[in-house]
Structure formats: C-alpha cells, structure tokens
Simulated scan of single mutants.
Amino acid sequence: MQVGTRGSSLAMVQTKNIITSLRDITNEEIGIKIIKTTGDKIKDSQLYNIDVKGIFTKELDRAVLDEEVDFAVHSLKDLPSELNDDLDILAVPCRESPKDALISPYKWDDLPDGAVFGTSSLRREAFCKYHQKNLDIQPIRGNIETRIRKVETGEYHATLMAEAGLKRLGLNEHIQQNFSLDYITPAAGQGALAVVARKDTKKRKLLEALTHKASYQEVMAEKKVLEELGVGCQWPLGVCARANGDALELQSILLSKEGELISKHNIKGSISQAESIGLEVAKRMMEDC
C-alpha cells in the first residue's frame, strides 16, 4: 500500500502518525511517496493572491486518481471545499488543537506599535486589524521551522501559526501564547487531518477505521459553512465547531479584508446534525452579507 504526502517535516510527521495507526490494524506494508504541490513551488507570493484551488492538494489528488498511491494524507484545512467527484474523505483521525498560537518574544498585548508581523493568511491579517493592532503586516512564507527562525533572528517581531502543527513537531517551547477560539477563530478544519482516497478503493473499510467520530462531525460542520459561502481563501472567515458528548457548538465569523465585522454567529445543536448546523450558520451569514 502506498500513501502520498507533501515533503515538509510536518506533512511527514502527520503521514507517519497515520501509518502508525494503520499498523495497529493491518500487517500490510505501507510505503510513502512524496509529491511536490503547487504551493510548495511558489515561494514569493501571499497565498490569497494565488488563484489556484487546492494549491497544496491538487497534485496529491491526481496521484490518488491515477492510482499511483492508495490514499493521501492532508492537513484538512488545505482541502478545497469541494473534492473531485471520484474522491472521498475516508477518515478524519482525532483532531489536535484548532487554536492559533503566537510565535514572538512579546506577549500579544505587549507587541510594540509598528512591530513587523509576518503572515500569509488573509484571515490572520484581518483578525490583527479587527483587534486594532497597529502592526506592520508583511508576507512570510516557508515551513514551520523557517518561519520560527525568521522571528528568532529578528526579521519579524511575531507571527501566528496553527498550534496543532507546532505540537505535532514537538515545537511547543516556541509558543508564546495561544488564543481562544472566540478571540481568533481558526480556519475550517484547522488541527485536523484528512485521509483521502478514491471512492471505489478496496481499502475503504481499513481507512475508515481511523476516523474519530467527534472530530469528523466537527470538520464536516465547518466545511459545510465554507462550501455554502464559497469564500475559500479569498475572504477572512473563521469557523470552528467543538463537540461535547452528543452536543456540537459551531461558531463562525466573517471579516472584511480591513478587519471590519461582517457577520458572526454561534449555533448549538446535536452532533448528529453537524452538517445541518453548518448549513444554518452559512444561511444566516449570507443574509448578513
């Protein structure tokens, strides 16, 4: 069995974690094929200025469709809102923290006026403006280790990253602080992984066994908001669902690029109705736009 993945240190750790879980339920040999994506090749542009759907997933999807690999492992927030008709998310393993984390020698409230803040995320940029931070926002690219190094060497005073990736790489010591889901609401699917395969794969039952049900329902609610709004990376949307037993709470906030509040909603309901909750939140947000 072959698994496709990007070649970054985070992608490799995430893929190896999936392989470890699979080895608990099968004796089948599992090989790794590293596939370079469009997003890996572009180093000098803000991600939201690149008009390419599935910038970090398209080449992996093609490898799965062409049966070069049996499945691919993605950071779920990288997936486009709509998959190819012949592909399916077969598993969402247990989710790591969806929160954003600050990498900086300063606490958030102590960042000096005009501090150079690095981000290639329109959402994070808009949240800085929403919270009226007087920062010099500049693009920053590179893998997690590269971005941390750019802060440590003083090229930037601060940046925000997904707490999940830092934890998976054992880089927790670089986290200055994390943020509540209400203060900086994360991107849909942040902290979650997706195992994507062909719909007709013979490995379906094996891969489906990796799913953590609560995590799956959370991200399905979030993806439904993204799918209905159709905003992708082009608008600053934060959306996060959290399961608690049989209940699920979904919060979503849409900002303008200037950091002005356009819409904010929070709905609670049954976890079994996750996608319906996402649909209702999206409906209310569209009425505000």
Results as ranks from 00 to 15, higher is better:
232 G>D: 13
252 S>C: 14
230 G>F: 09
255 L>I: 11
246 D>I: 02
262 I>T: 07
241 A>T: 01
233 C>M: 14
248 L>D: 04
233 C>Y: 14
242 R>D: 03
259 G>V: 12
228 E>V: 04
232 G>A: 15
263 S>Q: 08
245 G>P: 03
247 A>L: 08
252 S>A: 15
254 L>C: 08
230 G>A: 07
257 K>Q: 09
244 N>E: 15
229 L>V: 02
242 R>H: 11
225 V>D: 00
255 L>V: 05
239 V>G: 05
245 G>V: 03
259 G>F: 15
236 P>G: 04
253 I>G: 00
246 D>S: 13
239 V>P: 02
245 G>A: 09
229 L>Y: 06
227 E>G: 03
225 V>R: 06
233 C>A: 13
263 S>L: 03
231 V>K: 00
231 V>Q: 00
258 E>N: 14
235 W>C: 04
225 V>F: 01
234 Q>R: 14
249 E>F: 09
236 P>R: 12
229 L>K: 06
235 W>K: 11
259 G>D: 06
257 K>C: 07
239 V>K: 09
225 V>H: 05
262 I>Q: 11
262 I>L: 14
255 L>A: 04
235 W>Q: 10
229 L>A: 03
239 V>M: 02
244 N>T: 10
238 G>C: 05
261 L>T: 05
225 V>A: 02
235 W>G: 00
251 Q>P: 00
246 D>N: 13
253 I>P: 00
252 S>R: 04
247 A>W: 08
250 L>K: 12
247 A>F: 10
237 L>P: 03
238 G>N: 07
259 G>H: 13
261 L>W: 11
242 R>T: 09
243 A>G: 13
255 L>R: 08
240 C>K: 12
235 W>H: 10
232 G>H: 09
227 E>T: 08
249 E>D: 10
257 K>D: 07
240 C>R: 14
229 L>R: 07
232 G>E: 14
253 I>V: 15
236 P>W: 15
255 L>K: 08
241 A>K: 09
263 S>F: 04
226 L>G: 02
241 A>L: 03
237 L>F: 13
247 A>Y: 10
247 A>N: 12
232 G>I: 00
226 L>F: 01
259 G>S: 11
229 L>I: 05
235 W>M: 10
